[in-house]
């Protein structure tokens, strides 16, 4: 079979691909920001010496990390309508699922980051009269975040790749855009190749960017 890419015009991009691309980016951004905020709280809970904080957090994180993302997507798509007692769309469900799912992964990175900051920094902050909360927000967390920046970025690249799994509930993402276009023009083979190429370019550039940042950070230390 011969490959023929001639049908892939800007009109095709506009009407099929662009919509999916925007959704994939939005989903990544929302899950990243929401996941980091929620993940930071989970990490702080997990490091707490109060068992009623650390236990639920570690249960949540460990559970989500032992289940395939596809199953989590399916679970949320099944359960959210049951809880809200009304149907919600695949897209909204994806936003909620990815935020909660990513939080589990970001929290583990954040926890490692907090542990990477020496305990003496906390003591130094406290010796100056800063409260626990102030020490965390001005001294420990900024350092933890900085130390873990490369890992956060790597995790976010994985997140962007993972957004393609909304295939399981049929949300209109980048992959879906390519698939529908492929079906319409009866050129699925070409479409999958272009999709692979586009994802590659995006993720590869992001990972090069991450390496750059990693080296910059190394110099400062």
């Amino acid at each position: 079979m011969n490959l023929d890419f001639s049908f892939f015009t800007s009109a095709v991009i506009k009407s099929f691909i662009f919509k999916g691309l925007i959704f994939s980016f939005q989903l990544t951004a929302v899950a990243m920001i929401g996941g980091m905020i929620l993940g930071t709280f989970l990490a702080l809970m997990r490091l707490s010496n109060k068992y009623y904080l650390s236990l639920p957090s570690s249960f949540y994180v460990n559970t989500l990390r032992s289940i395939p993302l596809v199953m989590v997507i399916l679970w949320f798509y099944l359960l959210i309508p049951l809880i809200l007692k009304r149907p919600i769309g695949a897209e909204l469900s994806a936003f909620i699922t990815f935020t909660f799912f990513q939080a589990a992964y970001y929290s583990e990175i954040m926890r490692a980051g907090i542990l990477s900051v020496s305990k003496r920094q906390m003591a130094a902050g406290q010796a100056l009269g800063l409260t626990y909360r102030q020490c965390m927000s001005y001294v420990v967390l900024p350092q933890a975040f900085r130390n873990m920046l490369p890992l956060f970025m790597t995790q976010t690249i994985i997140l962007f790749q993972d957004t393609s799994l909304v295939y399981a509930i049929g949300a209109y993402d980048l992959l879906k855009g390519f698939e529908i276009a492929g079906r319409n023009f009866n050129r699925p083979v070409e479409m999958y190749l272009i999709a692979a190429f586009l994802y590659f370019v995006i993720c590869f550039s992001l990972s090069k960017f991450t390496k750059l940042i990693h080296q910059k950070i190394k110099i400062i230390h």
Partner: peptide, 23 residues
């Protein structure tokens, strides 16, 4: 490493399943 790391798994599976046999 870069090629197999930077393309989502589901697309890699589609490529093996749909693209390679047709080529």
């Amino acid at each position: 490493a870069e090629v197999f790391r930077n393309i989502p798994l589901i697309i890699q599976i589609f490529i093996w399943y749909h693209v390679i046999p047709s080529l």
